[in-house]
């Protein structure tokens, strides 16, 4: 019951944060466009007025791409350096806006203003960034421990066979569960930071862990539901986008609009997750733990 109450409250809170989600969508589009638009320009210049692009209609044509010559070198450098730079900036930007997003979905039923959103983003940026790197480090460490090590050891002991495959599948499943827990820790910690009068990094992290494991029976299934929904949405979106290949200018414009709407929805789903965890945290706070046997505290 608590789970569904938190989920529905989270959904309402995410809708309330539509402005923040809009800001996140807008800045992510600008950031990635800064990377993609010059690349598009390079491709246009490389192909010039050639008819060769007709050979790309059915997929990648290695001859056509290779014949781009020096333009291919530019495109490669976009991918190999520009791509990572944009990803890094994207991480900073999303981490920055996560502060505003958490602020806009906490307790109060008011829709926060844009300046307030930016103020909150700035206020919690360093805490959130620290949390991000800390949690990512833990996830990578656990990935190595849970997936890398057993699969690596199995591979080392002989030729890959069905056993390696089974061990790999089990390891990935266990790791996915662990990742759900890490997300819970991160979300609880961030929810605590924005609700605390004196935010503190390690206190937040400690709260994240204690809240996750203290209310595991409600937190974990709720997060699992949210993650499954997000994954299904992501898979569906990728499936649709992959098979949708418009051949006219209008069709491509429609593709652009659709993808951006889908990304907006995807960000709303993320806000739903933040909202649900925040709601659960607030619910948990109001529950007074029963007195231990013997009466006195």
């Amino acid at each position: 019951m608590k789970i569904f109450k938190s989920l529905s409250s989270g959904a309402l809170r995410s809708l309330r944060s539509w402005k923040g989600v809009l800001i996140i969508w807008f800045f992510s589009l600008i950031l990635i466009s800064v990377f993609v638009i010059p690349m598009k320009g390079t491709m246009r210049t490389g192909f010039g007025s050639s008819m060769i692009t007709e050979r790309l209609r059915d997929g990648l044509d290695i001859e056509v791409i290779s014949d781009l010559g020096p333009y291919l070198a530019s495109l490669a450098s976009y991918f190999f350096s520009g791509f990572f730079f944009v990803i890094f900036l994207g991480i900073l930007l999303n981490t920055f806006f996560a502060g505003g997003l958490f602020q806009s979905i906490k307790g109060s039923k008011d829709i926060i203003s844009v300046p307030c959103f930016f103020r909150a983003s700035a206020r919690y940026f360093w805490y959130f960034l620290g949390l991000y790197f800390m949690i990512i480090f833990m996830i990578i460490f656990f990935a190595f421990l849970i997936v890398g090590l057993p699969v690596g050891l199995t591979l080392q002991s002989g030729t890959p066979g069905p056993m390696t495959f089974i061990i790999g599948i089990i390891a990935v499943l266990v790791f996915s569960m662990a990742e759900v827990i890490f997300l819970l820790v991160a979300d609880y910690a961030r929810a605590w930071l924005v609700s605390s009068e004196k935010p503190a990094f390690f206190k937040a992290l400690g709260f994240g862990f204690s809240e996750t494991f203290g209310h595991f029976a409600s937190s974990f299934p709720m997060m699992l539901i949210l993650m499954v929904i997000q994954l299904l949405f992501g898979a569906l979106v990728i499936l649709v986008i992959r098979s949708w290949t418009p051949v006219t200018g209008g069709g491509v414009f429609l593709l652009f609009i659709t993808t951006q709407i889908l990304f907006y929805i995807k960000t709303l789903l993320k806000a739903w997750r933040f909202g649900s965890v925040t709601s659960l945290k607030e619910t948990n706070k109001n529950i007074v733990p029963p007195n231990p046997p013997g009466g006195a505290l």
Binding site: S28, S33, F256, L262
Partner: peptide, 19 residues
């Protein structure tokens, strides 16, 4: 069209990935 389509999809995939 092909270049634009490629760019649109790339933008979207990068958005999803970063998110």
């Amino acid at each position: 069209v092909l270049i634009r389509r490629f760019a649109d999809k790339l933008i979207f995939l990068m958005q999803l990935y970063i998110s």
